[in-house]
Amino acid sequence: MSAALTSSSPAVHHAETVRLAVAEALNLDPATVGPDSNLMDDLGADSLAFLDIVFRIEQAFSIEITRGEMERAARGDMSAEEFAPAGVISERGLERLRELLPEGGAKIAPGLRATQILSLFTVATFVKIAEGKLTGGAQA
């Protein structure tokens, strides 16, 4: 945490806190975890590891991230039905994903299922979620 503490920028501090939370949850050397690391492909996270990562981020920032908020990170205010009718993400849904989760890159393609969204997540995705939550909390 020392790097984070010496930083004057809150954004750097947030990013560092998330990075360390991810490394701890996955039992990895923090040096191997970068902001653009894809949680599943690069770091080997499974769906259970996501739960641990979210928990650690919640603790670190004293925030609560609900499942609904995780979903909104991907589809914004679009309804689940519109986003992924019958489980497969619609064309509009894909557009929304490219906008909200550009880190998904080429994986955002026709045929992608709503259940596969976590495969798009990078460390930076969680930084965005945490910061959104912190900002939202400040406004409330």
Binding site: L48, L51, D52, V54, F55, Q59, E64
Partner: peptide, 10 residues
């Protein structure tokens, strides 16, 4: 109870 770890159940 919000502090229960998600793995608690497992």
């Amino acid at each position: 109870l919000r502090l229960l770890h998600p793995y608690w159940m497992l």
